[in-house]
Write a protein that binds this DNA or RNA. Structure first.
Lengths: 107, 107
DNA sequence: TTTATATATCGCAATATTACGATAATAAAT
DNA sequence: ATTTATTATCGTAATATTGCGATATATAAA
């Protein structure tokens, strides 16, 4: 098999897992930290800062965009990426809800 | 290549990614939610509740144990799993730190 | 219009993950 | 001691992920 059986889980569980999956890579963590620390967040700067090949970074940025964690704005021939703050906060709350609701009984 | 280049990232980034990786699966989310909702958390109950094969559940439990999110206690021939509350809280704080520290400037 | 620069996409190789059947290991019950 | 019940491990097939070279695309500069 090898494929996650997402049909047997509910939307909230699948969405949580999807968010965690995007965050489950040190390059993407590093990219988010770098974007968060910069005023300007030019794609090429990210490539140089992280130390992975440009296509690799581009792919990671695409994954981060897929859950709206970051947004890209065209600036001439450059691309300015930034964190989507409202989505950032929304995801943080969503994760905290999961941690808070699950922290209960047992043993 | 296909392997994550963890050498080029720092410990905090790698640890964050490792935690997110364990959480990045709806079956493991469902297992955690189920364990959190029960007083007793017998392995076999988890198997029946989730609806995946017993070896699959056992493997997921192993992953959750690998980051100390849950603990298993032998009770006769049964196994009682429970959430490790101090680790649970520690991880929640660690993730919040990441979200809080990264939520900055840009655009 | 040609050239240079910046980013995205394609295709592939190397690994990692998910799921499960078969089976081993363990402990209670008979 | 044998059987039964519960959980773990092994091996494997199907897929997913990571990373990069080659290349396409797009815009600015010359």
């Amino acid at each position: 098999m090898g494929i996650t059986k997402s049909q047997i889980f509910n939307d909230q569980q699948n969405e949580l897992a999807a968010i965690f999956r995007v965050l489950a890579n040190p390059a993407r963590i590093a990219i988010l930290e770098y974007i968060g620390s910069q005023q300007a967040c030019i794609c090429n700067d990210i490539v140089e800062h992280i130390g992975l090949a440009q296509p690799t970074i581009s792919q990671h940025l695409k994954e981060l965009k897929s859950i709206q964690l970051i947004e890209g704005e065209i600036e001439g021939k450059k691309m300015c990426y930034c964190i989507n703050l409202s989505r950032w906060n929304e995801i943080q709350s969503f994760l905290n809800e999961f941690f808070d609701n699950t922290r209960i009984n047992c043993c």
